[in-house]
Amino acid sequence: MSDKTELTTTQGGDVQPASEQQRLEQIVRPAVDIFEDESGITVHADMPGVSKERLNVKVEGDTLTIDGVADIPMPEGMEPLYAEVRATHYQRSFTLSPEMDVDQVDASLKNGVLTLRIPKREEHKPRKIEVKMG
């Protein structure tokens, strides 16, 4: 990139601050538990620091995406001493299969744990097959 381009970009005011860029790049995959029972699939995801307002759950085509940004209160001028958590933007996607009813997905958030319930369509719920004696 030439000097001129950089200058122009800066003057245009479109440049995000470095920290904002860093935040976009630094995405963590939240830890999840996923299980299936007869009526559907349940996902539990650890997203500490994420409030309801900063959580986004969406289904696009057959892809379910969970996305959230943690908001932690910090005093002004704080300097880091030690850090194990490297990013506060959580994102993870899952591919769904056709028997899942995406219109009925239920999401709840409590103490930083997201619970998703994805029910199966009625016609796909398992039926017990009786074996008749011959």
Binding site: E79, E84, K110
Partner: peptide, 25 residues
Amino acid sequence: AAAFPPVNVGTTPEEVDVYLFAPGV
């Protein structure tokens, strides 16, 4: 690396702030 809950520590001249990322507790 794998300890639960992960911890961050920050300081200011007035205080020390410890953050433990412990969801569902």
